[in-house]
Design a protein around this nucleic acid. Sequence first.
DNA 1: TACGTGGCGGTAT
DNA 2: AATACCGCCACGT
Length: 107
Amino acid sequence: MRDLFKEKVFQYVTSIPKGKVTSYGDIARAVGRPGAARAVGSILKRNPRPFDPSGSNRKAIPCHRVVRADRLIGGYNGPVGTKENLLKKEGVKIINGRVDTEHILNK
DNA sequence: TACGTGGCGGTAT
DNA sequence: AATACCGCCACGT
């Protein structure tokens, strides 16, 4: 296991439970690079596997569960609204474009 | 409370 | 090796 920044980021994101969200900055701190929130975003942007490839034993990287520190949804690849829809599907409440605080991981 | 701004770390080319 | 590119954040109006 390479201990590259991005590997840790991917692993951390993979561990986010369904129905919960965390922020780019929180991830940066969690992997020992406080202040590297933007870098986390640029890594997730190039997410190698946003969804679970069928027939694979590798887990998907649920990058849609990563939102901004102000709880706005943030960016995502693909059509606008995709990320929000995925979150809603998982039972995440979104109020005025923001994730409700009850879904924030570690809060 | 809402918006603008500068600074920021890591990746990709 | 250097620079452009960002799915951000903290802070000041």
